[in-house]
Amino acid sequence: MVKHYDTSVELCGVKLANPVIPASGTFGFGREFAEYYDLDCLGAISFKGTTRDARFGNPTPRIAECTSGLINSVGLQNPGIDKVISEELPHLRQIFHNPIVANISGFSLEEYEECCAKIDKEEQVEIIEVNVSCPNVHNGGMSFGTQPESAAEVTRRVKAVTTKPVFIKLSPNVTDIVAIARACEEAGADGICLINTLLGMRIDTVRRKPVIANKMGGFSGDAIFPVAVRMVYQVANACKIPVMGCGGVSSASDVIEMMMAGATAVQVGAANLKNPYAAKEIIEALPKEMERLGIERLSDIIGIVK
């Protein structure tokens, strides 16, 4: 008899067939990947970071390759919340039928509040992921996520305008991740997502200039996986709310490692850019990896490492 390997997990009452979620900013609104495969194999999708107004983002070049990763300084290019709701969301719903995570970013408390209030009305969205950790925009994004007080304030303001589960996406570019995560939990966050990218920089030694026009950007990819596992472990052990783990995940083995560290769901980011089939291949490899490790129910191993 073939054994059944149960990959399902539950995030704040939202059931996912598996814990794998393409991370915001690496999957657009699903359109490009739908040309490669049927998106319904994915546990959920976290769509491109959305702000109140349409944004072009930073000047190019805004991509730099690194050993086992890349730096990006895209800077939240998106069509703005209204167009996301009127055009992208309906299209995403047509090509994807599992839970949608709305990634919201902002430059002021009012902007976070306004965008979350708008997205709260959208039935298609099951979870709101509030990005207080984008390293690529000035006077916003990451600045809210680097202090416990401001992260808590964003959480409170957003929670006041929505009944959907709110995950706060945190930055690794901080001295005390636990203090920030706890502040969000106390302010009413339903979950924590971490990590966003690490602030990095590359220099073109021939031109003697930064590779990226904006000088610095967010470092992601395989190289940051150990940092992500460490922070997921720290936060999962300090908080009662669920954690979505993110950062350098590129295999089924990585997914399981991050879940053992304490993640309830796991986001796959930069790996999608290298191999458009990455998330699908990771999901397909999960049962075999579970068999190898003697895991029958994936949810049993969440935070099993103490």
Binding site: G25, E32, F56, T60
Partner: peptide
């Protein structure tokens, strides 16, 4: 030409106006 991330439209790395 532009410096690209994914090459298939997902990462928005090579956008232009």
């Amino acid at each position: 030409e532009e410096r690209m991330g994914c090459g298939f439209g997902a990462c928005m790395g090579c956008s232009c106006k």
